[in-house]
Design a protein around this nucleic acid. Structure first.
Lengths: 195, 195, 195, 195
DNA sequence: TATGAATGAGCGTTCATTCAT
DNA sequence: TATGAATGAACGCTCATTCAT
């Protein structure tokens, strides 16, 4: 019923996204301006808002896209043999998420997405993240008394916590991943057979 | 050294805070405008910024104050005898933190800080939260292979996760506390093999 | 010469007009949007402009049509026996013209035109209005020292004035027709000395 | 109670108006852009909207001011000795009102001002116009069977009619004032003593 | 004729923050 | 301390009209 999307539509959308990408890689996410995007894309401002409800929607798409790329890469990796390797595998993703305070804020804001079925791109990546992790955990030397899915949920929770601390003045000293090691050792390590 | 705080200062500050409280209880945190606060307080816009470095500082104070009230209450409670009771004890706090999306966002942005000077009121509550929890955990039927402090860190991480999902349309079904039960059972329960 | 109008053309045109009518009676003239008209008519945006040079043309048609209906009715009436009756005869027309500020504005902008080709529908009604009035005036107890046509011109001028004041807050008290009575008494009544 | 207006406020307002005047005299009313006004005035855009609710409000002021200037001049003139002189006296005003289609439209739209007490500058000039005219008519060789005020009302009505016809393609031939002569002869001339 | 994505110029808005008085 | 006018940089929006298909 929804009429088929025309090729022209996709072309224009592509131009907008390409323009945004260029700007972002040149000056970062925070400094992306709608005005500049449409200029670079060679389309009218009205066209932008015909494709995206607002600037935030494009931002969501751009950041979500980047996260998806990382997840694609992660999904290829063999299951990690321990916490250290697991964190090493996650590191590029964590680095991306924290490389700009603005990006982390956007991610946080979109992670618990706006209600309704228009779940944004970022919110969807959170689901994928869990899936990728759960796959890793299933076969590895990790806790087995709870489901891999639950373990993955926890990894996410601890990762967010570690990233949040990364932006806290009090914790600038210790690197994010080190903090995560402590958390995940406690969370993922199989219980000592004898206390 | 610290110049003596004049009475006038405190009076004005009080008027500003009272005005903010009125507005917040009438229309919520998100819709508080500096303009309206000063109007209701009967002072000029500039006066606001003579008392608070920025709007965020007042916001931080208002939300932080409210959280502190909850923590005061929680600190009085006897150590919970299990996960269920622990969560029951936390519930009013969690409810406050999630009763407005905006409030949760502000809290998240300030999260991840432990006590020290010049840290905002909200950040300080996170430190207190850890302390309150750690005290609870020390004597209870909880995991002992890691420090109570680390356990408390984890509770915080899982609570944030549960609250974030609360705002996500994909997870609107299950109530927040139920999700938290699952998380904390897995996190706090002494490993089965050690039982 | 004039190419034969195809049936399809008329059908589409009819659908557009019907849609416009529906929208207008639901929400008034001012809020009619081309977008909505074509949606309701089930045709594409471009089709609209294949049938009407611009939105104004449709507007002109809709309002002009409505005025024509009133004029048809007025033309049937016997010549009024005095100013009061004359105004009574005009009242439905005046009411339509002033029931929406937007409508009055459109009419004003198109006003001042007498009949001829390629003049819009509203402009043409002004010509008709003059004719109807002039016919009424010819035989009645009205001033005879100037032509009925000129008298009719004046009625129009005074009617516009009365309607404009109707929209002016300064004159909200007195009803439009009362104002018009005063004007037309002075304009149409045979000069006293000539009585 | 309304706090006294500060000098700075008036200065800024003056700068905005001066800038608008410059632009208008350079390129006309229609081409006045808010952006350009604030640039030329050397103030921020936000400042503009702190002084005027919208562009239209400034427009109203500019056009209303210009009309007031004409009315000031007209108020100085001795009462005209007949219709011809009366129209000659009005001509600069009529010329201003019709020198730009855009200006005439604005005037029409504001003449029957937006409801409420914020009667615009233009709407107020309509009142003045009546007063100036009425003063002229009181002593001259004009109809005496109705009040000068009513006569003035009529002049206004006929003037608007004449101006409207001026913009009508069908009436481009005859000059506006000639049309007005006919109208006003019929409206103002004392009734022939013997018909 | 019909389609519908694209156009486009400028208005109005936002509101925390600054700064001269 | 107190005042409140001024700042400012985008964003979002409007929506009739055009034009390539």
């Amino acid at each position: 019923m929804g009429k088929p999307i025309q090729k022209r539509t996709l072309v224009t959308r592509g131009k907008l996204i390409a323009a945004a990408e260029e700007i972002i890689s040149a000056r970062g996410y925070e400094d992306m301006r709608v005005e500049e995007v449409v200029q670079k894309a060679g389309v009218a401002k009205g066209t932008f808002f015909a494709h995206f409800p607002d600037k935030d929607a494009l931002m969501d798409l751009m950041i979500g896209g980047r996260i998806d790329t990382e997840l694609d890469r992660m999904a290829q990796l063999p299951a990690p043999g321990g916490v250290d390797e697991l964190i090493r595998n996650m590191t590029p993703l964590l680095n991306f998420m924290t490389h700009e305070r603005y990006v982390f804020d956007v991610i946080l804001r979109h992670s618990g997405a706006a209600a309704r079925e228009d779940i944004g791109a970022i919110a969807r990546t959170f689901g994928r993240q869990i899936d990728v992790m759960a796959a890793w955990l299933a076969g590895g030397p990790f806790r087995k008394d709870v489901s891999p899915h639950l373990l993955a949920d926890g990894i996410q929770a601890f990762a967010v916590q570690a990233m949040a601390l990364h932006f806290c003045a009090l914790h600038n000293g210790e690197p994010m991943t080190e903090r995560l090691v402590v958390y995940l050792d406690a969370w993922l390590t199989p219980p000592p057979s004898a206390a």
